[in-house]
Design a protein around this nucleic acid. Structure first.
Lengths: 234, 234
DNA sequence: ACAAATTCTCTACACTGTAGACTTTATGCG
DNA sequence: CGCATAAAGTCTACAGTGTAGAGAATTTGT
């Protein structure tokens, strides 16, 4: 039948591999959102039968895990900077940018681990944790304390990302319109402060906001480092 | 046909209302998870045709929004305590407990707002924001600064909750087994620190962890309050 | 008691993930 | 080379999903 006329004028019939599957899945999610990632649709994107995908991901959930692992792999952590604080700052900004690059994947990043016990998560997902632990221990924290620090730090970081993505609106032209329109809907009586903050809400600087939060957190953590060396005594 | 033999020996045929629909939806999610909440299943739970639900929620997404709104309504904020710090601490713990009470809803809480511009969210969802803003402004923060503080605070809070739920495992007996089993799977070479932390990971005290993080955050914020009164200068 | 509005139900359709059997293609070995 | 074996890809089918649209049942107003 003719030439099968593949989707993207690509190489006739690419050999198909886990990486290829996952990366087209990611592209699809980036372009059209999570709901667009169905087996049939992905199969069509790869010009293959949907069923062939099951050779590279046990089921849809596993495929989603694969996608978030793939995204997290974009986060490179170099332990070159000796100052742990500036290092944490750098990772934070890297992760922020990564989230902005793949906003549709963020729900996965945040949600998938909730249904998978820590030890059984895809390895790529655990790498940042391990590396940050290494970094903190290197910086002089007790392993146990390092874990606490990691939790505070990563917790804050994920929280910030969620916050920022919530207020992020794609088209900056529509931004003010939608925002004001939305706020206008709020009953003035019960939401006076929120409504008054309309203009401030409109120009949100995520990077600055993140830096500000980090400053607070890191100063607090530095305090812990000097004072709380004798932790986990029992 | 007998007596239609309803599901739960309940009152013959309850009149059905938005609240009833949402609360049974919540109960279902609490008991069996998000995936169990399908229109058909919920209809069956209420002993009604699935289609009747559309009178109380425009579609499934709206129903999910309704559920998260319902959950957030459980969070009562009383502005009685004059000390804003202890007030924030109380809210934090309340929200934490709420999350532990409805772990299956947390993904909704975190995820739904990402697909809804701020101004168009269910009102119940915005109430905490408004109330905390009021609290902070009352405490002496500039409205603009109050917004920043709110973001740092709530960001951290959501982050903590996600962290805690990730490490939370239902059956404490299986806990250690699963955990160790999971960790054992990790290649010792690339994950030395994580593996070494097994025991520490096993006994996680969420409340303490939260308090610790809050202490760090609040001390930093208090600094901002005294020093940074001249914010948003332009 | 009748009309109007509300609420609930039925049927149907397009779409989902995926089990199981089958066909095609690649690979190893004499 | 030829054939056995394995791997990769495909086809069909099924149970389940959300929800549009028309209809039936019920409640309400007068």
């Amino acid at each position: 039948m003719a030439d099968s006329a593949g989707s993207q004028a690509g190489s006739r019939k690419a050999p198909l591999s886990r990486e290829l599957v996952l990366s087209t899945a990611l592209a699809l999610v980036d372009a059209e959102g999570l709901d667009a990632l169905t087996m049939r649709r992905l199969g069509q994107e790869l010009d293959r039968d949907p069923m062939s995908l099951y050779r590279y991901a046990a089921n849809r959930a596993a495929l989603l895990d694969g996608v978030s692992e793939l995204v997290l792999d974009e986060l490179a952590i170099f332990p070159d900077d000796p100052d742990w604080q500036s290092q944490l700052r750098k990772i934070a900004h890297d992760l922020r940018l990564l989230a902005l690059r793949h906003p549709n994947v963020v729900p996965l990043l945040v949600t998938r681990p909730l249904s998978t016990p820590l030890g059984l998560r895809p390895l790529g997902t655990l790498r940042p944790l391990e590396q940050i632990l290494a970094l903190l221990i290197e910086a002089g924290f007790t392993p146990a304390v390092a874990l606490h620090v990691y939790r505070a730090y990563y917790g804050f970081l994920y929280g910030h990302i969620l916050n920022e993505l919530q207020e992020y609106i794609v088209d900056p032209d529509e931004n003010e319109a939608i925002l004001r329109l939305g706020l206008h809907r709020l009953p003035a009586k019960s939401f006076p402060h929120l409504r008054a903050l309309g203009p401030v809400l409109a120009d949100y600087d995520g990077a600055a906001e993140l830096d500000q939060g980090l400053a607070i957190l890191l100063s607090g953590l530095a305090g812990q480092l000097s004072a709380g060396q004798r932790e986990s005594p029992s």
